[in-house]
């Protein structure tokens, strides 16, 4: 049985071995102008930004991707938005979603968000519909 004081000294020794923790990035008290410049870089402007190589995959559009494209065009035709508003909405998703989602998943995500933003559907209706579809899938129909 290790005593609390032994645990404390053990923990201090381990902390001494651990690398210096990185500065927290969430809501710091101040940042440099240079860092601010990097933070406000607009996400879709990827040309020349540092990144790792990406494998080129030669693939056809899937049905859901083509339907997403047509849906976004129809939303423009019906006056909900235009293509530039769609691109801005994609930037507005933030870095995690922008770079984490597949290309047309970004489109369908911002299309849904535009409908919510415009008050055409509520976010609860959208979530309930997703749950319906998930339940239908789980039921195997």
């Amino acid at each position: 049985m290790t005593s609390p004081s032994e645990l404390d000294s053990l923990q201090r020794r381990v902390l001494g071995l651990a690398p210096e923790p990185a500065a927290r990035l969430d809501s710091p008290y101040w940042i440099s102008n240079e860092f601010y410049g990097a933070l406000r870089h607009v996400l879709h402007d990827v040309g020349g930004q540092p990144d790792a190589p990406v494998a080129y995959v030669d693939k056809e559009e899937a049905d859901w991707e083509l339907r997403t494209y047509v849906l976004c065009e129809v939303l423009a035709w019906r006056g909900v938005w235009n293509s530039e508003m769609r691109r801005r909405a994609e930037n507005d998703l933030g870095a995690t979603l922008y770079f984490g989602l597949p290309y047309y998943a970004r489109w369908i995500t911002v299309a849904a968000k535009a409908l919510v933003d415009k008050g055409l559907i509520s976010v609860s209706e959208l979530a309930a519909k997703i749950d319906d579809v998930r339940a239908r899938k789980a039921a195997g129909s």
């Binding site: 406000r40 402007d45 930037n91």
Partner: peptide, 11 residues
């Protein structure tokens, strides 16, 4: 300066 949205590549 660019903010939020633009199409003029940084490079």
């Amino acid at each position: 300066t660019t903010l939020f949205h633009h199409r003029t590549q940084a490079y």
